[in-house]
Structures are given as structure tokens and as C-alpha cells.
Computed example of a mutant assay.
Amino acid sequence: MIEVQEVGRTFTISRRTGLLRRERRVVHAVQNLSFTVRAGEFVGYLGPNGAGKSTTIKMLTGILAPSSGRIQVAGLDPARRRTALARRIGVVFGQRTTLWWDLPLRDSFELIRHLYKVDRVAFKRRLDELTELLGLGEFLRTPVRQLSLGQRMRGDITAALLHDPRVLVLDEPTIGLDVVSKAAMRGFLRSLNAERGTTVLLTTHDMGDIERLCHRVMLIDHGRLAFEGGIDDLRATAPEESSIEDVVARLYARGAQAPDQ
């Protein structure tokens, strides 16, 4: 469902070094990255801040084009077929919302129906299903700006799934949620993957999310893949309470080769 082959992404950064002088340097955000995600997998994509996770997600969704290498998501080149790809994937950014801030939740969903050209009957059936599963019934007439973080996250998840995507990309979907909301979100995502077979790629700093949801994990550091394996392999590396930074440090302590600085 997702194929990444020897992908690189560089940025040129300019900074002032004098009154009339500027210095340019090339930053390798992602370097020679290769991995695959099979249909129906729930895969964790981890890494410390600045490791290249967000750059990878932006390339997978077509926001950025790779500087080198090849990417296919749901059979499409994201950078070349971004509009067509949008109909096959759903994306949720935990720190940003795709909903309209001043509109009631239901009106945001109706606008999304028009954007994705979802049949009205299919839309109603899907919205009713998601509303029940995520407990959104009492909030549908509430403006998005008045929702709690947990309620808004459930709204964003619903918005990402209204067009029944084959792939769901989640960037920190449980960030800032309380224990109850986090447990509910994990339960829903687990069911979505198990019962509907939706392919899920999850980025998170929460090791609890990884432990409870993912079949397999990949860890990126300094733009390169530093670890790939099962949950048991990761669990042997560091306890659940560890941060991603701790996991990276422990991996290198056990003999993993650190990417070039």
C-alpha cells in the first residue's frame, strides 16, 4: 500500500553571516530511505524531533516532492497525483485541525462531503456509523471552537474517514488527550484496522500508542531508518514509559549504527 524506495529530501537554508553576506547550506531531512507498508498493516513510524518524520509524511501525502527516489501510495505517485490520492487516503495532524473553526461540527462534515464528492446516501451511512462509534452525537451542532481537545480530535478522525480511505496517516492523534479520551481513541483505531482492514501509518511520541496499536515499527533518526521490527523487538529495547529519544539512545548503546550527523 505504501512503497518508499531510496528516497531523499534536501532543503537549502540561508542565514545572514554579515551585513551584506548570507551563507547557504544544504540540510538532508531524509536520506536514502526505503520501506514498505502492506495493505491492512498498522505501522508505527517513530523518531525524535527533527528526525525527518514530518518531511516523510508530507512526501507521502504529496505536500512535498522527494529530491530523489520513488514513492507510491495506494498505487499513485503522491507528488504527481495529489488530488487523486486525496480520495484514497485520510490524514490527521494532532496539532492542526481540518475542521472549520466557527462552524458546527456537522456543517464541517457536510463541506468535506462536497470537497470529496461523496454520495449523499453513502455519506449519511458513514457519518452515522462514525458518530456512534466515536460518541459524537451530542456535539454535532457545536461549533468546533467550543469543543474540547478530545472532542475535536474525534471530529478530525471522522472527517478523515468520511470518504472511506484505504490508507489513514496519523500524526500524533492522541497528543494532549486525557487518559479516558486516549483509551477511547486507541480502541477505535484498533477496531478500524481490525474490522475494516484500513492501512494505518502512525507517528507518535507516545510509547503507549505503539505498544497497544502497532503490528510493526520503524524508527527514523537524522533522516535515515535506524530500526525496523516487531513490537517485541522494540519492547526488548526499552520499557513502555521510555521516550522516543530514550529508545534511540538504547538502540545505539546495543550496537546499532548511528546515522551520520
Rank of each mutant, 00 (worst) to 15 (best):
I2L: 00
R9G: 01
T10W: 04
T12V: 00
G18M: 08
L20E: 14
R25L: 01
V30E: 06
L33C: 04
F35Q: 13
R38E: 13
R38I: 04
G40N: 09
Y45S: 15
L46S: 13
G47M: 08
N49Q: 12
S54L: 07
T56A: 09
I57F: 01
I63E: 15
A65T: 01
S67P: 01
S68N: 07
I71N: 02
Q72R: 06
G75E: 04
R80W: 03
R81K: 10
R81A: 11
R87H: 11
I89Q: 03
G90C: 07
F93A: 10
W101Y: 07
D102R: 10
L105R: 05
D107W: 02
S108W: 01
F109P: 01
E110Y: 09
L111M: 08
L111R: 10
R120C: 03
R126I: 00
R126M: 01
L127D: 00
L127T: 00
L130M: 07
T131W: 03
R141M: 05
V144W: 02
L147G: 05
R152I: 02
M153A: 11
R154S: 13
D156G: 11
A159I: 01
L161N: 12
L161E: 13
L162R: 08
L162W: 05
H163D: 03
P165L: 02
L177T: 09
D178Q: 13
D178E: 12
A183S: 14
A184K: 14
M185E: 07
M185T: 15
R186W: 11
R186H: 12
R190T: 09
A194K: 15
G197S: 13
T198V: 15
T198P: 05
T199H: 03
T203A: 14
D206W: 04
G208R: 11
G208L: 09
R212G: 08
L213E: 13
C214I: 09
C214S: 12
R216Y: 12
V217Q: 05
R224W: 00
L234I: 06
P239N: 08
E241H: 14
S243Q: 12
I244P: 09
V247N: 13
V247F: 07
V248L: 10
A249N: 12
Y252C: 06
Y252S: 04
A253R: 15
A253M: 06
